[in-house]
Design a protein around this nucleic acid. Structure first.
Lengths: 152, 152
DNA sequence: ATAACTAGATTGCAACTTGCAACTGGAAAT
DNA sequence: ATTTCCAGTTGCAAGTTGCAATCTAGTTAT
C-alpha cells in the first residue's frame, strides 16, 4: 500500500468527524433513526446529560443534519427530524454498528433493519468496485484522481 | 418507521463508539490505512499532541484494532499495524469519508481508493438488501430478529 | 566507554469539555 | 390560579485535552 493521501485538506473524513465525531452524536442519530424525536425521549433512552443533549442537538441542527420543528398543536413540544444529509449518514452508522456487533458486543444486535419487500435483514455494509463486485482491502490501492481509468 | 430498538444492550453501536468514537481514533486509522505506522509519522501528519497520540495508540492496541511490533533490525523502532479487526473498520471509515466529502468538504477527496484490477474508484458505500439490491432508508423497517423471513 | 541521537512515552499545568443538579420560562391541564 | 410538562440554561465539580518540557531505552558515532 503506497504512502499517499497524507493530505488532510483533500479528505472528507476530518469534516465528517467535526460534525459527528464525538461520543454522543451517533447515539442521537441512532435514536432518531429509531423514530425518537423529542428532547425528553433522547434523554431517557440515551442516558445523556441535559446540557450535553441540548448542545449536541443544536449542533446537529446547525450542521444541517437535523431540523428542529416546533409543534403547532402543542407549542411546548419540539420535534427533531433527520434531514436528507442526516439520513445519508445511515450507511456509516450501520457499518459502525455491524462492526461493533462483530467485534465488541457478544450478542447479535436486535432489532435489525430489514427490507420491507422481502422481510430479510440487510446485507453487511461492504466495499464494492465500480462494477458492483465486492472487494477487500488487499485488492485496493490509493490513486490520485488524475491517474484513474475511465468508467466504461 | 416503528419506534423499536431503544434497547442499548442489544446494539453494537455503543461498543463500537467506545473503541473508536473519539475525534482522533479515526484519523489515526485513516493514516494507518494510508501506510503510516510510526509514532513520529502520525505526529507530523495529524498534528495531534504526543500524549494524546500515545494514549490513543495504546488504546487501539488494547482493543485489538492495531498491533504494536518492535522492529528486529532497529529495536528503537516500533511499527503500528492494523489487525483484521482494524481492517474491518474500513467500510465505516469510507462511508464517513464519502459523507464528509459530499456534505462537508467543498472539494472532492484525493487520493481515492481504487480497485487494483480495473483502476477505477470504488463505488459509494451503500446499503444492500440480502439479495444485493441497493436499498434506501424508506424501504427499510426495524424488525425483531425472530420476526425475520428466512433466507431462500 | 562516553556522548549524541532517535522513537516512544510520561509528567505538569492551563484550557476546555463533561456530567450532574438545580433552576428558568413558556404552554397546556386541572 | 396553581400545577405539571417540555425544552433549555446556568453553576460548579470532575474529567479530558492540548501543549511543552522531560525522561527512558536502544542505536550510532567518537
Amino acid at each position: 500500500m503506497e504512502k499517499l493521501c497524507d493530505n488532510l485538506e483533500e479528505c472528507g473524513l476530518p469534516s465528517a468527524l467535526e460534525m459527528v465525531g464525538d461520543r454522543w452524536s451517533f447515539m442521537i442519530l441512532r435514536a432518531t433513526f429509531n423514530g425518537l424525536c423529542h428532547f425528553e425521549e433522547f434523554l431517557n433512552v440515551l442516558g445523556i446529560a441535559r446540557n450535553i443533549l441540548a448542545n449536541r442537538l443544536s449542533r446537529l441542527v446547525e450542521d444541517g443534519i437535523m431540523q428542529r420543528e416546533q409543534m403547532a398543536d402543542d407549542r411546548r413540544k419540539v420535534e427533531y427530524r433527520l434531514t436528507e444529509k442526516g439520513v445519508d449518514l445511515l450507511p456509516a452508522l450501520l457499518a459502525l454498528r455491524q462492526w461493533g456487533e462483530k467485534y465488541g458486543l457478544g450478542v447479535p444486535s436486535n432489532p435489525v433493519l430489514a427490507d420491507r419487500r422481502d422481510n430479510l435483514a440487510i446485507a453487511p455494509i461492504r466495499i464494492h468496485a465500480a462494477d458492483g463486485r465486492e472487494i477487500g482491502w488487499h485488492e485496493l490501492q490509493w490513486r490520485d484522481k488524475s491517474e484513474l481509468g475511465k468508467q466504461g
